[in-house]
Design a protein around this nucleic acid. Structure first.
Lengths: 271, 271
DNA sequence: TCAATTAAGTGATATAGATGAGTTGAGTCA
DNA sequence: TGACTCAACTCATCTATATCACTTAATTGA
């Protein structure tokens, strides 16, 4: 017979809708002709994660069950999961199951903290909050956060110290509307990393970052905090943190004293 | 019958060597018990590429033919190719074939040149060679190049200009023994990028780089070349370029005037 | 001659099933 | 009780096959 298996997704399929083994509504409604089935499955799984049906650190259903749920073969389901694992959204453990990525301390440090000792050693920074204020987005902030200028923001200033020495000054900007209820105390007294707070308290998951670096001269403020002379060279890092659909979450400008530390960029796996 | 399909790779296989459909020697000799078949296939393909049987830009045999050559199913062969494609060693083109990655200009720029305009625009730099000298590796260079201190090196100094303005000073160090026959003229008059020269003339392929960044003050030399005042903040990039087995190829120290440009690091796909 | 069609090649997607390996917990037996 | 076995579950790997989409070159036909 000439009816292909893929054409079962097509509106022009000869199979009567609802006949025989029914197509799950999740796929028959959202399916399009041009996109591969596994991409569609991936998209549905992403939606399920970001909708909260599978919260972080929880196990998702077994591959067999998922394949049945989405009405696809296990190989197709597996390909979708493969990509989600490659994007650090899911984590597989043989014999145990597949889990939604958790943002524990080690993971965060490894993924988003790129400052290492001059010898390449990784240290865990200690954080001190200098300021927590409300303000309105300027053009630059609005652009990077995907909102209109004037949008109400939280602005936080942190100092990060490595082995007791202040090395980094962070200026963080986030949209108030996305973090309603946030207070200085909640931010300061978080039990884990900042991105973990975003996820656990506001359901906002940071998946990746885009960073732009340049060398600048220390102004009086930064010089005072970092204990360098005014005009000393500092590494400026402007980071945009992004969530699921490249939705901007946070705009952060860091100044780093790189006298004894470095920014490490390993492009091993990157495109 | 209890003989699994995988056990056909095992020395304890019940299949007599050379009987029936022979196992290609490439797999029957190199196979081990613990590693997945597709990893083994991937390793063999990598060897074939680095041995020169499939030169850069050439098409490798069709998937079906390769599956037959390595004695595995197409799905397994495909998984091996998948990883090689993900690591930018192979490039697939539907309908045409699979090719060994070429180091053409656009590709190189995209992968290894991370300096963009302040607005994110990508420009192609023009290069001018300032020096081409021979020397002996100091401790730092020896460490990053994986050789002993005192190893004879080539040292090249380049100036890269964007839209006519000198922006970057590159200090490049490579091991003479790995680039025997290299002359200043060959280096200067290369028709393409430096990494393309490494590949086309010396068979050395740069696959990835590790970069360490810091902010420094311009010394008199750099200040003169880049047209900034002595002491101005510059972005220092120390790059190690690596080949197939993380073999160091080149050690490069760049100084960048980031007044109007930035270093862009997109960690979209990276682990 | 030259444009359109066709056929054969390629990789891309999808299915279905079998086997292997690691994990967990219920049940068994001393 | 407590150590052990074992079954049932998970993901991991591998095979085999089929169809679709894209590219290229040969063939056809005006």
């Amino acid at each position: 017979m000439s009816m292909s298996k893929r054409s079962s997704r097509s509106p022009s399929s000869t199979r009567a809708p609802g006949s025989g083994t029914a197509i799950p509504p999740s796929l028959s409604t959202g399916a399009r002709l041009a996109v591969p089935l596994y991409k569609e499955v991936k998209r549905l799984m992403l939606e399920t994660v970001s909708a909260g049906e599978w919260p972080p650190a929880s196990a998702i259903p077994a591959e067999k069950a998922l394949a049945a749920r989405f009405g696809v073969a296990m190989g197709t389901l597996r390909k979708a999961v493969d990509e989600l694992v490659a994007e650090n959204i899911l984590v597989r453990q043989q014999g145990r199951g597949t889990f939604v990525a958790r943002h524990d301390r080690e993971r965060m440090m490894f993924h988003f903290f790129h400052i290492v000792g001059a010898d390449g050693s990784k240290e865990t920074p200690t954080v001190q909050m200098l300021a927590f204020q409300r303000g309105k987005a300027d053009a630059d902030e609005a652009d990077h956060l995907g909102v209109a200028a004037g949008e109400p923001l939280f602005r936080i200033v942190n100092v990060l110290s490595l082995v007791g020495v202040p090395i980094i000054v962070d200026h963080i900007a986030i949209v108030q509307a996305r973090f309603s209820g946030l207070t200085a105390a909640r931010f300061r007294d978080r039990p884990n990393t900042i991105y973990h707070l975003y996820q656990s308290a506001f359901g906002i998951t940071v998946l990746r970052t885009a960073e732009r670096l340049r060398a600048v001269s220390a102004d009086a403020d930064a010089a005072g905090v970092l204990g360098v002379r005014t005009g000393a060279p500092l590494l400026q890092i402007r980071r945009t943190a992004l969530s699921f659909n490249d939705q901007p979450v946070e705009y952060r400008c860091s100044l780093v004293n790189t006298a004894a530390h470095e920014y490490f960029s390993d492009l091993a796996k990157a495109g």
